[in-house]
């Protein structure tokens, strides 16, 4: 892994509420979806931070907030010390050079009516000072080569490529401006199993080659473990546990993390009869109306009175080495070796 440097991305108390409104002519706010509700973390140069959590936990909204595709309700996102959340116009455009994204669905993330050359070259059209006009074609071919595609295919259209190849096109587009941070939002989950490893390897190679820092959002816990230096676990808009990859996977302290890890099917049938599995009951509550205190308490087997009253902050708990948002945090190994 690359040497860890100073924080390149600092996220503090990030909050995003989507208002729920009623009425057509006169809009009245009747509530809010608390998609992201007070998330803080740092990302260091060359590092990979994995973000895991189930649908509705706010991880995709978090990605959009980092990319300044959504404006936060409050809180801050700083890249190299520069505030993103309130940047506008030219300032925002400059910020974007440093943070790019790779999206989940390679079928919808590429404009079907643009050639691959136009798609990968568009960053240079938008940021004209990055590459002189005469140089853009060469740069595009170079980028295609870097991600393992034939540079002679610049004049083809996305539909002429397979899913894995399209994802490579998306990665080439994300690399064009030489960003220091790439937000990967489920970059392999839409791909065939036999292709996923290829793309994971490509992302790892590019990280070494260009010193990239990744925010790697995924629901596949084994892929996240493989590529991440640190991992954050989200539940209902909150970060419930954050630590080094080994800390989260080998010594999880938050009950939700433990349940999540134990629920993952292990691709090895040996000893499956004896495998201990924490089956959570019910579904996550609605983010429009989260429980008081700890948000996980409605499904938690450790829940006590304090959990309903006092929200547990994300901090390092006694006897553990990493941050957890549980009043009763304790280590428990739930993954089979």
């Amino acid at each position: 892994m690359a040497a860890m440097g100073e924080p390149i991305l600092e996220v503090r108390d990030l909050v995003k509420y989507f208002p729920l409104t009623r009425g057509i002519v006169v809009r009245k706010q009747i509530g809010a979806i608390r998609a992201v509700d007070g998330v803080s973390f740092d990302l260091r140069r060359g590092e990979t931070l994995g973000i895991v959590g189930e649908s509705g936990c706010g991880k995709s909204t978090l990605a959009k907030l980092l990319m300044a595709l959504e404006r936060p309700t409050s809180g801050s996102v700083r890249i190299n010390g520069r505030e993103v959340a309130r940047a506008r116009g030219g300032e925002l455009k400059r910020v974007r050079r440093n943070i790019q994204m790779v999206m989940q669905d390679p079928y919808t993330s590429l404009n079907p009516r643009m050639t691959v050359g136009d798609i990968v070259g568009e960053p240079f059209e938008i940021h004209r000072d990055v590459a002189p006009k005469g140089d853009r074609r060469r740069r595009v071919r170079e980028l295609l080569e870097v991600v393992g595609l034939d540079p002679d295919h610049v004049n083809r259209y996305p539909h002429q490529f397979s899913g894995g190849q399209r994802q490579r096109i998306g990665i080439a587009r994300g690399l064009a401006l030489r960003p220091e941070i790439i937000v990967c939002d489920e970059p392999v989950s839409a791909l065939d199993v036999s292709i996923q490893a290829q793309v994971v390897n490509l992302l790892a190679r590019l990280q070494d080659e260009f010193g990239l820092a990744y925010v790697f959002i995924a629901h596949d816990l084994s892929v996240v473990r493989h590529i991440s230096d640190r991992v954050g676990v989200m539940y209902l808009g909150k970060m419930v546990e954050l630590g080094k990859e080994t800390e989260i996977y080998d010594r999880p302290t938050h009950p939700y993390t433990q349940a999540l890890l134990s629920a993952v099917p292990v691709p090895n049938p040996e000893g499956r009869e004896r495998r201990e599995r924490i089956i959570l009951h019910g579904d996550p509550p609605s983010p429009a109306d989260p429980p008081s205190g700890c948000r996980f308490r409605t499904r938690c087997w450790k829940a006590a009175e304090i959990c309903a009253v006092e929200e547990p902050p994300l901090r390092i708990r006694p006897g553990t080495g990493h941050a957890s948002a549980c009043h009763f945090a304790e280590t428990r190994d739930v993954t089979p070796a």
Partner: peptide, 27 residues
């Protein structure tokens, strides 16, 4: 070889930091 390739490409703990085994090519 295909079944073996699929099983080999599952990320394992002891392969951390190494390249994953990947079946080359496309379906």
């Amino acid at each position: 070889p295909y079944a073996k390739g699929l099983l080999d490409s599952v990320p394992r703990v002891d392969q951390k930091g190494q390249e994953l085994f990947a079946i080359k090519g496309m379906p």
